[in-house]
Amino acid sequence: MRTDPAQEALHKLELTISHLLRIGVLLAGMFLLIGWLWLWFANGSLLGSFTVYESKSLFETIHWALLTNDRPMVISILGLILLVCLPVVRVFLTGVLFVKQKDFRLAIMAFLVFVALVASFVLGIDL
């Protein structure tokens, strides 16, 4: 029994999306674990740097971590950014999948959700 080449291509794209998400979650978890363990070994405490709350933007935190050469914080932030970006990538790739399936209504909805997610991230970041 032969399969339709178009269906096979769609199945491969679905598998690629699945593998990408799995690898992304594993990488994000690895970055977070490495950053937290490094912070623990460097400071002797995981929560030592969180004793005083200071309201800072993400860019200020990254800038300060780079200036002070706080590599554990930079690695942890990288893991968090990767973890937050995975659902956005998933929505975009789902839109691409719908376009390839010629289901344009669902593709438009997926891309509208993608635009809304990106806009919410851009508008929600305190520069």
Rank of each mutant, 00 (worst) to 15 (best):
89 V>H: 10
93 L>M: 09
118 V>P: 03
102 K>N: 03
114 F>I: 09
92 F>W: 13
115 V>K: 03
111 F>Y: 08
106 L>W: 13
117 L>Y: 05
116 A>K: 07
96 V>H: 04
117 L>C: 14
103 D>K: 14
106 L>H: 14
89 V>W: 14
101 Q>V: 06
100 K>E: 10
111 F>T: 03
113 V>P: 02
110 A>S: 04
103 D>N: 14
91 V>G: 05
110 A>R: 05
113 V>M: 11
106 L>R: 15
89 V>S: 13
96 V>C: 05
102 K>I: 04
91 V>A: 00
90 R>I: 03
93 L>G: 02
105 R>D: 15
99 V>M: 13
99 V>F: 09
113 V>W: 08
108 I>E: 06
90 R>Q: 08
111 F>I: 01
114 F>D: 10
93 L>K: 05
96 V>S: 06
107 A>E: 01
118 V>W: 06
100 K>W: 13
113 V>Q: 01
102 K>P: 01
91 V>Q: 07
116 A>N: 07
89 V>K: 11
119 A>D: 07
106 L>D: 07
102 K>C: 02
105 R>F: 15
119 A>S: 13
115 V>A: 14
100 K>S: 07
92 F>T: 06
111 F>R: 04
108 I>A: 12
99 V>S: 11
111 F>N: 00
104 F>E: 00
94 T>W: 08
105 R>V: 15
92 F>H: 11
94 T>P: 05
102 K>D: 01
108 I>M: 08
114 F>K: 10
119 A>I: 11
114 F>M: 12
98 F>I: 07
111 F>S: 03
95 G>E: 01
101 Q>R: 11
103 D>E: 14
116 A>W: 03
107 A>S: 03
115 V>T: 13
118 V>H: 03
101 Q>A: 03
92 F>V: 14
98 F>K: 07
112 L>H: 00
113 V>I: 15
108 I>W: 09
89 V>E: 12
